[in-house]
Amino acid sequence: MNALTSFILILVVTGLAFAGGEISSCRVLLDVVLPYAAMAAFLVGLVYRVLKWASSPVPFNIPTTCGQQKSLSWIKSSWIESAHTKLGVAVRMAIEILLFRSLFRNSRAQIRQEGPRLLYSENKWLWLGALAFHWSMLVIVLRHLRFFVEPVPRFILAMDAVDGFFQISAPQLLVTDVVIIVALLFLLQRRLTDPKVRYISLFSDYLALFLLLGIAISGVLMRYFFKVDLEAVKQLAIGLVTFSPIVPASIGALFFVHLTLVSFLLAYLPFSKLVHMGGIFLSPTRNLPNDSRMVRHVNPWNYPVKVHTYQEWEEEFHDKIKAAGLPLERE
């Protein structure tokens, strides 16, 4: 149900963009107003969210330790998984963010009633799918810089060359285009067919997937099948980033779909689970060093509490302490 609703929503947005692109008076809206509004929402929203998280203090030092602590000199400590130095934490975070370390641990548990026996097996598919998607996404976003920057930076061209490694057809088939769609379809398939994941999936989970799929598919269609005028696209893009927007006469209907969905994603991102993009950096179980007995972690709102003092305790149990022959502060 959630999947269907979100699918329909994306279809409706696609349809509106398609129709809007046909009406010349709508083009200003789609080409200029929408991207600006979306970008503003994205930047302001994301900064707001991060500052909102940042405004809550980190009262305790609570890293999840995934390796040996630093203790005795002759015991090898796990300087990354249980980092006690800043460098260790930085490396841990880097591996987490760039390679999805934690997801790499993933396993699958099954139960056999006879025995009973619990079976665990390697399960790296989620890791692979997630990594494939995110890296492709990053490369694709960077590749799009060629529309926004003139002259096109060399590293973009170099990246393009690597991406088009297989030199299949013209325009060259880019590996990331295939990978991102395959990865998204895998993630969607997983959500739909794994009963556990299906059970936990919300409308917004499907929405994000359909939205990204819509963007990827419309982009791929534009690149390989229903060609658009790239010169016009670049003019529009540069016009937007130099704050002197122009509305090219015609680019192609698919372009409006692509641009509208991207704007949707930008505006939606800060207000959805997709903010995990920024959140991962702030995760206290990952970005804190396991040095809480070495260095005192200060809680800014630490407040005095009511305790049962020794004096109160001794008073209450005075006679019993005395009878037991234990020392007393006051006889």
């Binding site: 989620l126 556990k196 936990i200 702030l282």
Partner: peptide
């Protein structure tokens, strides 16, 4: 508590429901 614990606010926001934790 949202204002006192970054962990709480963050963990309320960033779960993507990937399901990696489900059978752990």
């Amino acid at each position: 508590r949202l204002e006192k614990f970054r962990s709480f606010r963050l963990f309320m926001d960033i779960c993507v429901r990937c399901g990696a934790c489900a059978d752990k």
